[in-house]
């Protein structure tokens, strides 16, 4: 893949999480959708302001669970009825009550793995490069004591002039352009 060029987004730096959350909510209200908050520790309100909970992880988890229960139940059916039929205490070969526990365990296993790996995949991980690391103030502050809001250039509402003006209405320490 050829290296991408141009501007990735505009990043505002804040000193407090409250300012970050207020700016994020205002950006969403102004119609921005492609944006991300970067904080040194989890800030729940920021996730909420980004509507971060509306992700596809629950769907992936559900699909994984359904896949787990189906796979386990069909597998046990095949083993007991066709693969290796055994007479166990005279019970029918297709003794479904005995299949429930393994099917339940596979449901949990598949759902758990789908949620974990689905989350990693939806986050775009593993990722060896990210444009925001080009900003020097980000490299210094993002893991210690600064709070960042990045409005990304591929948002339809993004405009280098208006978006900058918009971000400068907040008490941001700085608003910098981030290159790809």
């Amino acid at each position: 893949m050829p290296p991408r060029e141009g501007i990735y987004g505009l990043m505002a730096e804040f000193n407090t999480p409250t300012e970050l959350v207020e700016a994020t909510e205002a950006a969403r209200a102004a119609g921005y959708r492609r944006m991300e908050c970067y904080t040194p520790y989890p800030v729940e309100e920021a996730a909420e302001a980004l509507h971060f909970h509306e992700t596809r992880v629950p769907l992936l988890c559900l699909l994984g669970g359904v896949m787990g229960v189906t796979t386990a139940f069909l597998m046990e059916t095949w083993i007991n009825v066709w693969g290796y039929p055994l007479n166990i205490a005279g019970r029918p070969l297709w003794s479904w009550p005995a299949f429930i526990i393994p099917a339940y365990e596979w449901t949990i296993l598949f759902a758990g793995l789908s949620a974990a790996f689905g989350m990693i995949a939806l986050n775009g991980l593993p990722q060896l490069y990210h444009p925001v690391l080009n900003a020097p103030n980000f490299r210094n502050g993002a893991t210690t004591d600064k709070f960042f809001l990045c409005l990304e250039a591929h948002d339809p509402k993004f405009s280098i002039i208006e978006t900058r003006a918009f971000l400068e209405t907040f008490p941001a320490v700085s608003v910098v352009e981030v290159d790809h």
Partner: peptide
């Protein structure tokens, strides 16, 4: 509820 059923079903 299911555990109770399964144990009794298995014991028969």
């Amino acid at each position: 509820t299911f555990a109770e059923f399964l144990i009794i079903w298995s014991g028969n």
